[in-house]
Write a protein that binds this DNA or RNA. Structure first.
Length: 269
DNA sequence: ATCTACTCCTGATTGC
DNA sequence: TGCAATCAGGAGTAGA
């Protein structure tokens, strides 16, 4: 599942399309999470790619006039290919065609999306997003001011993109384990000291994952097709019944807001 | 205002 | 063995 590190890896992986001119779009499947607006997209034909960046889990590809916003959803991947092949593989939904190469979006579960926008920062998917976890604005003071007024579990707060972005179900489990905090603990009972732990480990874990090229799970391949290999470092995610690496206690699994949650009840309070 | 459940979808896994 | 039911999950949305 693409979270911040996987999206960051994808952005780096498609850097080769920078300054290339869009020749045309090949659309195979309009019905992604939102229906693709083809006529809006086609205003980008003939324009050059000026900038590729990540905001939260979104990839924003900007031309002189207009941008594309891509979300990988649960199972989306981007890959680059030569123009010579013209066959859509299973679950290839659209292609952006350049002079010699093309960018292909593949997404079995179709939770991903593609939007055209003139101003990404004003777009409905982007404008309500919270702070970037790797920026200086995500710090102890900011987090404490957020959590102290909330009664939902800290896990839900960290996954809510309106407070802090980019953290999904895998990394939030890892962050809370590293911080020794129970995911069920409600925001208003999170102390300043705990905020400090969360901030430190969020940055550490995300940065390490980016360095390693994103977590490998069933779905994620970076654009060159190489697999990330952070999986080997996961301490609690998907380890229910197995011994905690710190205290040997069995890792527990349960749901918080319909999401799989993994915890060592001895280490996390 | 916050918070939770529901929803979209398909592939992998589980159960009979 | 095979088919059906269940589960996985990002994030917008509706309703509590």
């Amino acid at each position: 599942m693409p979270e911040l590190p996987e999206v960051e890896t994808s952005v780096k992986g498609i850097a080769r399309i920078q300054s290339k001119t869009i020749k045309r779009f090949n659309i195979n499947q309009l019905n992604l999470r939102w229906k693709i607006d083809v006529s809006a997209l086609e205003t980008l034909v003939g324009q050059r790619i000026l900038n590729i960046r990540r905001r939260a889990k979104y990839i924003i590809i900007s031309c002189g006039k207009g941008s594309m916003i891509i979300h990988l959803g649960m199972s989306g991947t981007l890959r680059l290919a030569k123009n010579t092949t013209n066959v859509f593989k299973t679950h290839d939904h659209f292609e952006i065609i350049f002079e010699k190469i093309k960018l292909i979006f593949n997404d079995p579960r179709r939770f991903g999306s593609l939007h055209f926008t003139l101003n990404p920062d004003d777009h409905f998917l982007i404008k309500h997003l919270g702070t970037e976890p790797l920026s200086n604005t995500f710090n102890n003071r900011y987090l404490f001011n957020v959590v102290k007024k909330l009664s939902s579990p800290i896990k839900s707060i960290l996954m809510n993109q309106r407070w802090v972005v980019g953290i999904g179900n895998i990394y939030v489990n890892e962050i809370l384990f590293a911080s020794k905090i129970n995911p069920r603990r409600r925001g208003k009972y999170i102390t300043k000291k705990m905020c400090k732990e969360i901030v430190i480990h969020t940055k550490k874990i995300l940065n390490r994952a980016i360095k390693k090229g994103g977590t490998t799970l069933k779905d994620f391949h970076n654009p060159s097709g190489d697999l990330g290999y952070f999986k080997i470092d996961l301490k609690v995610y998907n380890r229910q019944g197995e011994p905690c690496f710190v205290c040997k206690n069995k890792i527990d699994a349960f749901k918080i807001n319909q999401r799989s949650t993994f915890v060592c009840k001895k280490c996390q309070n």
